[in-house]
Simulated assay, not measured.
Amino acid sequence: MTEESKTDTTEDLRQETAQEAPEVAEHDRVAELEAQLAEAQNTTLYARAEAQNLLRRAQKEAEDARAYAATGFARDILSVADNLSRALAAIPEELRTDEKWKGLVTGLEATGRELDSVFARNGITRIEAQGQPLDPNRHQAMMEVPSADAEPGTIVQEIQTGYMIKDRLLRPALVGVAKKPD
């Protein structure tokens, strides 16, 4: 090859490379921008999902707060219900029919019914215990009672009534559980 032909070939290669370089640089820039766009879309998608989860969590917490707002007060008022029940249970039958005491007994019974009604309106229910199998999620065994009549593990005595508030335990029932006689 002659010197002139070498120079022409080199010049042709330079021109081809110069033409390809902007195309390659432009292609790289497009690919980079597409990657940035995909990353921005993913970031936006994650941010939206997180915001939606946060909103759901806040709504659930607000619903729980409304549903269980009376929990502390309900626990406190249970002792009043217990004392009223004990008072009613302590009244002998002869006083219940005695004209002097009949009004008082009737008033106490009406108060007990009203208290039960208020509990029901607020989602507070008694836990059934007597004759049920022991459920450690709802009952607290305080003692074992030898019993030939009941299956072991069955509640045969209720020491203190348990309560639920909606689907949550407010207070466990304190119970005596049957065991095989010695």
Rank of each mutant, 00 (worst) to 15 (best):
K179P: 06
Y46T: 14
Q132R: 10
M142I: 05
D182P: 12
D182H: 11
L33A: 09
E16M: 12
E128C: 05
Q132E: 09
V80N: 07
W101Q: 04
A81W: 02
L13Y: 15
V175G: 00
S117V: 03
I91V: 06
M164I: 04
I155D: 00
Q132F: 02
Q15I: 14
E94G: 04
A65Y: 07
L108P: 02
A58C: 10
K100N: 11
A65E: 07
L55W: 15
E94S: 08
K179W: 08
Q41G: 04
I91D: 00
M164D: 03
P152C: 01
A62N: 08
R75E: 02
N42T: 15
F119G: 00
L169N: 05
R56C: 13
K100G: 08
D167C: 07
R126M: 05
A21V: 12
Q36P: 04
R126F: 03
D8P: 06
P92Q: 01
A178S: 05
K102Q: 09
E128P: 06
A173L: 01
L95F: 08
P22M: 14
G112A: 14
E39R: 08
L174F: 07
G112V: 06
I165E: 05
A173W: 00
A69K: 06
E26V: 09
H139N: 02
Q15N: 13
N53I: 12
Q59F: 11
P146H: 00
A110G: 09
E39V: 05
A67S: 11
A150P: 04
V24E: 13
A129P: 02
P133Q: 07
T106L: 13
E34W: 08
T9Q: 13
A129M: 03
E93G: 01
H27S: 15
M1S: 13
G72T: 06
P133G: 05
A47E: 12
A51G: 10
E20L: 14
R14F: 12
D116L: 04
Q59C: 11
T71W: 01
